[in-house]
Amino acid sequence: MKILVTVKRVEDPEAKIKVKPDGTGIVTEGINYKVNPFDEIAVEEGLRLRDAHGGEVVIVSCGSEASTTEVRSALAMGADRGILVKTDQTLDPDAVARILVKLVEQESPDLVIMGKQAVDDDQNQAGQRFAQYMGWGQATQASKRANLESEDEKARKPGLVISGETVEVTREVDGGLEDVRLKLPALVSADLRLNLPRYASLPGIMKAKKKPFQNLTPEELGVDITPKITAKRFLSPPMRQAGEMVPDVPTLIKKLAEEAKAI
């Protein structure tokens, strides 16, 4: 089967993020970038399904030239080929979804796996919009019942169950897990507990340089990426005020009512 997995280049979540003084964005100098962690989980799941069922894993990213690095890191993990839709413009989730639609028309994958959201702006929208445009079934927040210490996980068994024309997915929902079955082709987005992604091996990193890699542009795909959402201004969250100890419950209630106006 053919599996298409998306990866996004994001700021290192451990990095100290500073907002530019003019509020137009964040300071990017000295910031490290990496693959969105949820996308790594998506790549891992794709590789496991390929190893179990045969076929190929195609990695797709949208973004600047620099995103080549993130596509290559997914190839280093073991994916088969890469596609970068190159643009220096800021992309909103709807533009990404429409780019994906065009790519899927070209590639005709059986399954698209994405991270449930990118940890930079946490939109959690591209996957859902894409599935809607395609008229496909979607299972977001894919997880699994086996825990991440289990033998199944150690044996790198896939969490998604493919049988015939369907895929079974265990989703994380409020208060528990939900099992759904979708008709293929389908969109699945990966949550944290779907798997533990493998490390790229050194030979894998070296081989990745030689794997097929295609560069495209939104124009070539005929997609208008004019953003529907624009960021007006970036602000740092206000400094947290120091806490205060109160002597007893009545004082607490009084303060909550009068000072915090919370009750």
């Binding site: 890191s73 490390y199 790229a200 091996s201 050194l202 990193i205």
Partner: peptide, 14 residues
């Protein structure tokens, strides 16, 4: 080189 940086990253992550 890029490869050397990637080797460093994998080692660090591990």
């Amino acid at each position: 080189s890029d490869t050397q940086k990637e080797f460093a990253d994998v080692t660090t992550k591990f």
